[in-house]
Write a protein that binds this DNA or RNA. Structure first.
Length: 215
DNA sequence: AAGCGATCCAACCGCAAAATT
DNA sequence: AAATTTTGCGGTTGGATCGCT
């Protein structure tokens, strides 16, 4: 039970950050609701967890996204849709919130994707459900991609070809110039297609297995 | 310098799954 | 086995900042 107004909201102060970090340094993370109570923070557990994961954790990388990171995000998004935590799990040092924000504010614009009502977003609806919700990989465990992966730009990206079950490969630039792919289905509803080898190619070394590794 | 709309991003919310009791 | 609590996800919001007039 949470009493009304028991917890603070809004931006975190330096003092709150200090208290949270000190508590985690001594006791470790997890049991977020307990942290909030025991450390004397007037923040709910959810807020503490989010603050740690998105900002205070030493594994969080700050600063602008590199071209390599952007390219990787674009390709992964093209493959699996708005699975931000899954995408973030493959972009070392970036959190799902960072990736989501960057996509919404920069990449979707860059690619000319109109922001749609997310609930009606057609990107991979059935696959998303199949993957389940709990598909994240903890930040601490994904700091390095597999050795055989490459992040070079200029790779191919898969887009729907117009027919129900065939796809062509397009460069990121082609997609940028193609202002309408955000409004179309990017994948066939037949999820089995995603498991076929040729669909792995667009990631230039990242396979769906790699993306889904650790599920 | 001031006003104001646009942009960006940290943080919140609701929900569902997983874990615990 | 059921109820409760905790954790995690994705969408959304609100306030700080930017940039233009």
């Amino acid at each position: 039970m949470e009493a009304r107004n028991e917890y603070r909201k809004g931006l975190w102060t330096e003092e709150e950050d200090r208290i949270l970090m000190e508590y985690i340094r001594v006791h470790g993370k997890g049991k977020w609701n307990r942290i909030a109570k025991m450390a004397g923070l007037k923040r709910c557990g959810k807020s503490c967890r989010l603050r740690w994961i998105n900002y205070l954790s030493p594994s969080v990388k700050r600063g602008d996204f590199s071209e390599e990171e952007e390219d990787l995000i674009i390709r992964l998004h093209n493959l699996i849709g708005n699975r931000w935590s899954l995408i973030a799990g493959r972009v070392p040092g970036r959190t799902d919130n960072q990736v989501k924000n960057h996509w919404n504010t920069h990449l979707s614009k860059k690619l000319g994707i109109k922001k749609e009502n997310a609930k009606g977003n057609a990107s991979l609806p059935s696959l998303s459900r199949k993957l389940g919700k709990n598909t994240s990989v903890p930040m601490e465990s994904n700091s390095e991609p597999p050795s055989d992966c490459s992040c070079e730009t200029g790779g191919k990206t898969m887009v729907e070809d117009g027919s129900q079950s065939t796809f062509k490969f397009a460069s990121t630039q082609e997609i940028t110039e193609n202002n309408n792919f955000g409004s179309s289905l990017w994948f066939s509803n037949d999820d089995l297609n995603l498991l076929t080898p040729y669909l792995m190619e667009p990631l230039d070394g990242y396979s769906l297995d790699f993306v889904l590794d650790g599920l």
